[in-house]
Design a protein around this nucleic acid. Structure first.
Lengths: 193, 193
DNA sequence: TAAAATACGGTCCACTGGTCCACTTATGTA
DNA sequence: TACATAAGTGGACCAGTGGACCGTATTTTA
């Protein structure tokens, strides 16, 4: 069964309105009702199609997630498969970092939704799993799953926004901090011989 | 002007009721109205005295914060003043870790309140400043302010709860992870000679 | 063109944090 | 002991939220 024409029209209108509102308005002034109003549809229409605000944000961010996942799964090394473990880790951190910076308003909406909404999101689980693998490959001596969660938490959009806006740390300082966190410079303890 | 007897009675009742509710109920089922009802007072009574929910949580946690701050400022080394920089850092991490574990329901309420409520809290600022100093003393080569924020973020009660409950990491594993984060084992890069 | 399937959205609900203000109560003074 | 007054109280109310319902309108299919 194909999607009805009016449904498709409304879907596009709602997504566009939501995107615009999230960019323009302060996060907690964005509500179902405002999005519906901006899109020129009823609240129930938004709800039925996307379930809730979380689903709407998911739908907005999904294509960008997919694009990055493609680059990670089958792009050029070192972000794609192949290459030195250390380089693969750093390339991945850069890609994640840029992704968060570029999509920070949507990611903050995600984080805002519930206490675990950010981590439980399927995309986040992918990022974290991949991060775990790459940390483990580059630094076999550390507790990679835990460190992956910590690094991912340091990449939260709300955390980064706070550090940038209220602690006046510039973006590149944060980026350097994330890299240092995941793979400190200097000699690694060589526990394997 | 001294506090009126009924006001004092209500203050105690509200604090006790709030404490009990936060322990017993799921966080987002705790509301002003429920607290007021449980304390047997009106909502406005709660609001006037504590300003808002944040103020109430602050009042609950303040004495415990003060107790730990005393130990940090004037207790026995290495948590108190004096001792080896590395030992001071690790003692402080342990104390903070235990503090979060013991008060996790209240801390989660704090974090829940607003995006920056956790970090903006005066107590948090103290913890972070102290953490910054101790990291800097133990590891002069790293970006101590940034690392302090990251470590403090890793100590968020919601993050730790998520890792414990949904990722099945036990408490001691988290503790070890935090220590490794702030001061990785093995040779430190010696950039100072 | 008619029937059936699908989508729509106005309206209602329970609930939130927060404010208002007429009323009660404790307190210090005379 | 009487009483004026400052302080404290709490039920009613506000605008806002996410969500559910269901009669109506529109599109698709036969």
């Amino acid at each position: 069964m194909t999607e009805r024409a009016d449904a498709a029209r409304n879907r596009v209108a709602v997504l566009a309105a939501a995107e615009a509102l999230f960019q323009r308005e302060d996060l907690d002034h964005v509500s179902l009702a405002r999005i519906a109003e901006a899109a020129g549809v009823g609240k129930a229409t938004v709800m039925r199609r996307f379930g809730d605000l979380l689903g709407l944000v998911d739908a907005l961010i999904a294509p960008r997630v997919a694009a990055l996942q493609n680059r990670v799964r089958s792009g050029e090394p070192p972000l794609g498969p192949g290459g030195d473990a250390g380089a693969r880790l750093h390339a991945y951190l850069d890609a994640l970092f840029d992704f968060v910076v570029e999509n920070r308003t949507l990611i903050r909406a995600l984080e805002h939704y519930g206490p675990y909404a950010y981590y439980a999101n399927p995309a986040s689980q992918f990022w974290i799993d991949e991060l775990t693998h790459r940390i483990h490959a580059a630094r076999p001596a550390v507790d990679a799953p835990y460190l992956a969660y910590v690094v991912f938490t340091a990449l939260r959009a709300d955390v980064m926004d706070y550090l940038r806006v209220h602690q006046h740390m510039d973006t590149e300082r944060l980026r350097a901090g994330v890299h240092a966190l995941a793979a400190p410079p200097g000699p690694q303890p060589d526990l394997h011989r």
